[in-house]
Amino acid sequence: MILYEDGTPRTHHAVSNLVVEVDEDSGVATARSCVTVFQALPELPLQPIAAGRYRDRFERGGGRWRFVERRVRVHLVGDVSGHLRV
């Protein structure tokens, strides 16, 4: 991944269509969502560079929920020349 002078890859992950399922008895929850990654650079106008899905898992312990795992599945890839070193 390429980091710029501000320390970021100059991307934004827009998450949508979030579905959360909670099993209170077992203290486990899952979430599914769609993600679109946008990037803008001085020489690259704002554009989507990737799209896919997140599958997240959470567990409750000590009365608090905590994030356990995220699986990412990328379905579409655009111009990632300003994001990844190939």
Rank of each mutant, 00 (worst) to 15 (best):
G61P: 04
T30W: 07
T8S: 12
E43N: 12
I2H: 05
Y4A: 09
E21Y: 01
E5A: 10
I2L: 13
Q47S: 12
R73H: 12
V68T: 08
R32F: 03
T11C: 10
I49L: 04
R10H: 08
F38W: 00
L44S: 13
E5Q: 05
L44D: 10
P42N: 09
R53C: 10
V37H: 05
A14S: 10
V68F: 02
V19I: 14
V77T: 14
S26D: 00
H75Q: 13
P9A: 12
E43T: 05
P42A: 05
S33Y: 03
V80L: 02
Q47F: 00
R55E: 11
V74P: 07
H12Q: 11
R66K: 15
A51R: 03
E5I: 05
V68K: 12
D6G: 11
H75L: 14
H12V: 04
P42C: 08
Q39G: 09
E59W: 01
E21L: 08
S16R: 08
V86R: 13
S26R: 14
G27P: 06
E21T: 15
H13S: 04
E69W: 04
A50W: 00
L84G: 04
T8E: 06
L76C: 12
A40W: 00
V35S: 03
R64S: 15
V28Y: 03
F58I: 10
T8I: 10
V74R: 14
V77D: 01
R85G: 13
S16V: 12
R53P: 02
P48L: 06
S33F: 00
Y54H: 12
R73E: 15
V68P: 05
I2E: 07
R55C: 11
T36F: 00
V28F: 04
D25S: 06
L41G: 11
R85Y: 01
R10G: 08
R85M: 09
R70K: 14
P9V: 03
G7I: 09
H12I: 09
V22A: 09
D56L: 07
R71E: 15
F38V: 06
L76N: 14
S26F: 01
G63H: 11
S26I: 07
L3F: 00
L18V: 15
L18G: 12
S81L: 06
N17K: 09
T8F: 01
A14V: 10
D23L: 11
R55Y: 03
A14E: 09
I49N: 00
D79L: 11
S26E: 13
I2C: 05
N17S: 15
D56N: 11
G27I: 01
Q39C: 07
E59F: 02
G62E: 14
Y4D: 11
V72R: 13
R60K: 15
V35K: 06
R64H: 14
V77F: 02
P48Q: 04
A14K: 04
G82C: 02
G78V: 02
R70G: 13
I2R: 06
L44T: 15
V19P: 04
F38C: 02
V37P: 06
H13Q: 07
A40S: 03
V80F: 06
G62F: 04
L18Q: 12
F67I: 13
Y4H: 12
G27Y: 02
Q47A: 14
L41I: 03
V20W: 08
A29H: 09
A40F: 01
Y54S: 10
C34G: 06
R64Q: 15
G27W: 06
T30R: 09
G61Y: 08
R70M: 09
Q47E: 05
E43Q: 13
